[in-house]
């Protein structure tokens, strides 16, 4: 008999959309900033996302990988990514120039729970490339400044040359509605005017925190979490108000390939943003 059946599917979630690199410049020696726009203008404007979500970027001939979106949905049309050169795919991205084409699909993941953060004090702690996803939420808060309480930024890097968005954050320091603290582990330039020391050395500088009223967002290298969380717990911020965003191997971004599985959840669907409570609860998170 005729087995064939007309399929009901309309959208193939694995197909990327072509996107053009609008701007590219280095942030540090091994991190570059990419500003891209979906070629189809309607899709570009319809690309709606939350801070903390990620997109899959593909490079012809190299492959596809997940990257946090660093831009804010409050400034639609362009997507921004900070990409560190670590492997083949990122190596291939690094070779691209303005006007080159890449593939983009997304947005994926849960993102930060903006509704729950409304009216709260926002404490953002970032280290190294952790700035990539957290810049999105920072800019979002600043663009919607009246919807949040205090906004505090703690940012650490190994040395001044490795601080991502160094100039951008230095400029932000001038804003009165933002408490911005920058630090470097070591200053090899002699020109650094801010704090020297690991990011946790910034905590004593904070003005009194109202823990129940505070939502803390953390992202950085794996070693950073342990110490930062200790500080946050010392401040008595509730475990489910400490949010962190995690990195996992991903091949699909849509909950099919299995690589990002942790216990029974998929980082790509249920994450990459988790609370510290999730972390205690699901032992494999960090």
């Amino acid at each position: 008999m005729k087995v064939e059946k007309k399929t009901t599917l309309t959208k193939n979630p694995f197909l990327p959309d072509p996107a053009r690199i609008v701007r590219v410049y280095p942030l540090t020696q091994d991190v570059k900033f990419f500003q891209v726009r979906l070629v189809d203008i309607n899709k570009a404007l319809a690309f709606q996302y939350h801070p903390g979500q990620f997109a899959m970027i593909s490079i012809l001939g190299a492959g596809e990988a997940p990257f946090s979106i660093s831009s804010t949905p409050s400034r639609p049309g362009l997507l921004e990514f900070c990409i560190r050169k670590t492997g083949t795919i990122t190596g291939a991205i690094f070779n691209l120039k303005e006007n080159d084409l890449i593939g983009v699909r997304g947005p994926y993941g849960n993102g930060f729970p903006i509704e729950k953060m409304l009216g709260k004090d926002i404490l953002i702690v970032m280290g190294g490339l952790g700035a990539a996803p957290l810049r999105s939420v920072l800019l979002y808060c600043l663009d919607n400044r009246d919807q949040f309480g205090r906004v505090i930024l703690l940012h650490g890097a190994k040395c001044p040359a490795e601080m991502i968005f160094c100039q951008e954050f230095q400029d932000l320091k001038k804003r009165e509605d933002l408490e911005c603290y920058l630090t470097v582990d070591t200053d090899d330039t002699g020109q650094w005017e801010d704090n020297i020391g690991v990011v946790t050395t910034l905590f004593p500088k904070l003005k009194a925190i109202n823990p129940e009223q505070t939502v803390s967002l953390v992202c950085g290298p794996p070693v950073m979490y342990k110490f930062v969380i200790q500080e946050l717990l010392k401040l008595q911020i509730p475990k489910d108000q400490i949010l962190m965003t995690l990195e996992r191997r991903m091949k699909c971004g849509v909950g099919k390939c299995g690589h990002c599985a942790i216990d029974y959840i998929y980082t790509c669907l249920d994450g990459p943003v988790f609370t510290y409570w999730d972390v205690i609860h699901m032992r494999e998170l960090i």
């Binding site: 190299a62 492959g63 091949k251 099919k256 599985a261």
Partner: peptide, 26 residues
Amino acid sequence: CNCYNVQDQPLLSQDASNIQRCWDSC
């Protein structure tokens, strides 16, 4: 079990790639 891996297999004489999906194992 459903896990899979994806490989970009470029074609030698064209600017194009086959995106291949293959079973993976955790």
